[in-house]
Design a protein around this nucleic acid. Structure first.
Lengths: 161, 161
DNA sequence: TCAAGGTAGATGCAAATGCATGTATCCTGA
DNA sequence: TCAGGATACATGCATTTGCATCTACCTTGA
């Protein structure tokens, strides 16, 4: 329940401290994302499209439902629906009826989609590493990962959409 | 140069660790932002528009230039140009020629804009606090703020757009 | 079993966005 | 001083997005 390596939990943060943390997190995300988007690798395929391919690549067993995918992406349901339609037209994903629920569609990477994700992904992680390079040491980076993961989990679990 | 409360800097992180940290940061941002956007307070005025008002509210002395504003927001220059145009039409900001550079425009909050920002902002920070509530204790939150601020500063300084 | 309400995804349409480019202004070096 | 290039912002236009709504399917309770 408490931080693994730490002592007792410190008090609940104030509204002000919380707002500050969110602003800092958000601005960092903007600064990094703005620079990642500028990568020529995202000329032909937008970074949102890439993100969908990436997310699908992490769930190889049968793909994902549209609504599951939607949890990971900052897009309205209808926008994601059409984004996936575009990916299908490009031959990067397939859409078929979900096996257990005829309302749903199951989205799967095609071989071309998987290959595209890998190709772009290789350069992408290098670009991320270049951007972050020297900003944080290994401990700090691990702590950043831990804290953001913890925040996300908490938010997702206690505040359903 | 080193973490205030820490010891010596640990090694440079691997590409993999860096990519993991970015994904975690990004997903946390998505989860939080998705829920913040759903706030009925952002019915009449989108969260991006609010963000511009908020940023302007932090720089009371004469406002900001469009290109300065653009650093804070994840929008193409042309999109921000039109977003500001919309805010002007709503009477929330004014645009006038920058004093020192006739190419630039200086964007300033109107009284109505400042009031709107304050009104929405009050509920907004409470909503942030509610979302984060209990996710992290005070120390963890402070560390999250510190790490994301450090990351942002480093990225902005070493990777100009 | 079936009516009522809920959920998954698609679609029409207006608004927002980004790219390419345009115009005006500023800067720099010969 | 001035020509060439850079910078700041605006604009035309095609694409993308979100809202409201639709259809199809699922679930529940009487």
């Amino acid at each position: 329940m408490n931080p693994p390596a730490g002592g007792a939990a410190t008090p609940t943060p104030s509204v002000r401290e919380t707002a500050e943390a969110w602003e800092s997190l958000f601005r960092a995300q903007v600064a990094v994302m703005r620079r990642l988007q500028a990568d020529p690798a995202f000329r032909g395929l937008g970074i949102k499209e890439y993100d969908v391919l990436f997310t699908l690549s992490g769930c190889p067993q049968g793909g994902l439902r549209l609504n599951e995918l939607n949890e990971h992406v900052l897009l309205a349901q209808s926008s994601l629906s059409r984004l996936v339609e575009r990916l299908e037209r490009k031959g990067l994903v397939t859409r078929r009826a979900a096996p257990d629920d005829a309302r749903g569609i199951l989205i799967t990477l095609t071989e071309a989609g998987r290959e595209t994700q890998r190709r772009i992904g290789r350069g992408h992680v290098r670009e991320i590493s270049r951007l972050f390079g020297g900003a944080l040491d290994a401990d700090e980076l691990a702590e950043l990962t831990r804290l953001t993961a913890k925040l996300r989990e908490h938010v997702v679990e206690t505040h359903p959409l």
